[in-house]
Amino acid sequence: MVENIFVSIAAWLRGLLGGLGVPDLWNDVILMVVKLLAILVFILVNALWLVYMERKVAGYIQSRLGPIHVGPKGLLQTAADIGKLLGKEIILPKNIDLVVFLLMPVLIFVPPLVIFAVIPFGKDMVAVDMNIGVFYLIAVASLSTIIFWAAGWSSNNKYSLVGGMRSVAQMVSYELPLVLALLGVIMITGTLNMNEIVNAQKNVWFIFTQPIAFLVYFIAGVSETNRTPFDLVEGESEIIAGPYTEYAGMGFAMFFLAEYANVMIVSAMCTIMFLGGWLAPFGLDFVPSWLWFFLKMYLMIFIFMWIRWTYPRIRVDQLMAFGWKVLVPLSLANIFVTGAGMYIFRAIGW
């Protein structure tokens, strides 16, 4: 019952529309729009509460309380913050590139939203079951860099431009190990479909067979989401807020919330590729599959926050050296070892 609650809702909606005499094609279209809207609401609500979670985690790590005044336990603090940001005047500096400047905060949510369409949240719970889902995710995720960059450039501010340039440099260096790390898992499963990758982890999660790939993916993922220790793109103490410096009110909030959407994506990918996705560990399948997925995802998000509030920011040259001299060779070696291992296991007939 609880296991299939979302699948049942979708089936009920389909039956309802079919009963009203809606043709199949339009039935599919309406259902898809409903699914995507549900994902959009899910992302936005999550991004809102993740800001609260971040502040609470930061508070406990720094021996203070974090937000406590608005709502019970301060739960409504971020909602109030968004209300304040919505009411703020949008300040437009004099020499900006107006159209690009205003367009980028709007577009920043497009890549996360379209990526979530292929993520399986639970058994049979995926909006679009794509055969090459992993590849789709990598391709679409690469588009957010140009949005960061264009936001920085259109602000016509030197700090914004430096931040935008840094975001491109960081993407070039860390996208490679990110993709190469996933390749180890894909070699074992022989598929790019996320549901099949999850199903392939029935016996053992890939974090145990591919620990190095997991580490490389996680580190490169922290870098992709521009979070400490890799937050050079928006390093407050160096370049104010990087590409977002000139944005006021909701424009700034969009970038801020998009960061949490990206954190959710990387955590969800860690869960799917390495932590068994929606599969229940130790046969504890009385807990619904989607709940397992969210538990694992929030655990990953918590580790993200833990790292952010424990480590200092690294320098630009350290960032480049670490990416090219450690992560890339490590992920290449992982592919080599995985290939050799698969060959040996096949030879001894495992």
Partner: peptide, 11 residues
């Protein structure tokens, strides 16, 4: 097309 061309546009 998206990964190689559109993604590389920023470079």
């Amino acid at each position: 097309q998206i990964l190689v061309y559109a993604g590389a546009v920023c470079i």
